[in-house]
């Protein structure tokens, strides 16, 4: 039993990272109506920026928050310069542009940082605690704590501030929002900026757990984040968080206890999600949209 609990805790930690990236996907999906395939690469790029800042001798948390700021600006710029110019085109065009961004960012990171393996400083101690026979790593607790803090800050921003309200309104009813003076197109850019920040946190948290990383750091994480977002419902922030955590825990348990699936964690997860989607086509928390003719 203690063994299982241990797997659950470390599952929650990796699930927290999936949740952050899934939340970023949901944020952009809700405002732009597009699945952002470049989300993982944006996060990877941010992680390299953080590494660079640390490499130049900045203290950890200074580099951390500076990276978030840079990521925010980067996300806003991507929306303004690229996404905005194709935002009125068909979905395939916008999706293809995010695929172009994925390829471009991956290449740019390989170019700037020479495609070499880097090691990102770990902000958490490597201690473990024994709680009634359950061994818990400080790193896992740290990841859970930071993820939770970010989610709460974001929630407060959306629920308690004027700009957060305008952002939600712009996503739900852009035409009416403009009539109230909300600068909708800037709200979309703001959404991209926030998504980039979420991705940056995910990348910075996940990189030290991998030992070393290169420009392909986030591709597997992105796939799990997609799965988490779909599981929870693409338009539901709560769904993204729950989906991420559930996915993290299930993957960990399946990988640890069912031998056949040990190297088939990914297909197993997909099968599970497909099954759930067949019962609930809009995810666990998504709303089904009633279409008008």
């Amino acid at each position: 039993m203690a063994d299982v609990l241990q797997q659950v805790v470390s599952g929650i930690a990796s699930g927290g990272v999936y949740a952050l990236l899934a939340l970023a996907l949901v944020l952009i999906y809700r405002s732009t109506g597009v699945v952002n395939f470049a989300q993982g690469e944006m996060a990877m790029f941010s992680t390299f920026v953080c590494w660079e800042l640390l490499d130049r001798g900045l203290p950890y948390w200074v580099a951390f928050f500076l990276t978030l700021a840079i990521s925010f600006v980067g996300g806003v710029l991507i929306e303004r310069l690229v996404i905005h110019t194709v935002s009125r085109s068909q979905a395939l065009t916008v999706v293809t542009v995010t695929i172009g961004l994925l390829i471009l960012l991956n290449g740019a990171a390989a170019w700037i940082w020479k495609g070499e393996q880097r090691t990102l400083e770990n902000p958490f101690p490597s201690d473990t605690f024994d709680v009634g026979g359950v061994v818990i790593a400080a790193q896992d607790l740290g990841i859970i704590g930071v993820s939770l803090a970010i989610v709460l800050v974001l929630w407060a921003f959306f629920q308690r501030t004027r700009v957060g309200l305008a952002l939600r309104a712009a996503a739900l009813n852009p035409a009416s929002s403009r009539l109230h003076g909300v600068r909708v197109s800037w709200m979309l850019a703001l959404g991209w900026g926030l998504a980039a920040v979420l991705g940056a946190v995910a990348g910075i948290l996940v990189a030290p757990t991998q030992g070393s990383f290169d420009q392909n750091l986030m591709l597997p994480v992105l796939i799990f984040a997609f799965a988490a977002a779909v599981l929870g419902g693409l338009d539901s922030p709560i769904g993204a968080v729950v989906g991420g955590v559930v996915l993290g825990v299930v993957l960990n348990l399946v990988g640890a206890y069912i031998d056949f699936f040990a190297d088939l964690r990914l297909p197993a997860a997909l099968l599970l999600i497909l099954g759930i989607l067949l019962l609930r086509p809009n995810g666990l928390f998504g709303r089904s949209v009633v279409k008008r003719v």
Binding site: V82, V86, S89, V97, L101, G107
Partner: peptide
């Protein structure tokens, strides 16, 4: 390393902007 991907991605994005 990386440069061909940068060119590929940039051309693809530019193409989609010019020819949506």
């Amino acid at each position: 390393p990386g440069v061909p991907a940068v060119i590929y991605g940039a051309v693809l994005i530019a193409l989609m902007i010019v020819l949506p």
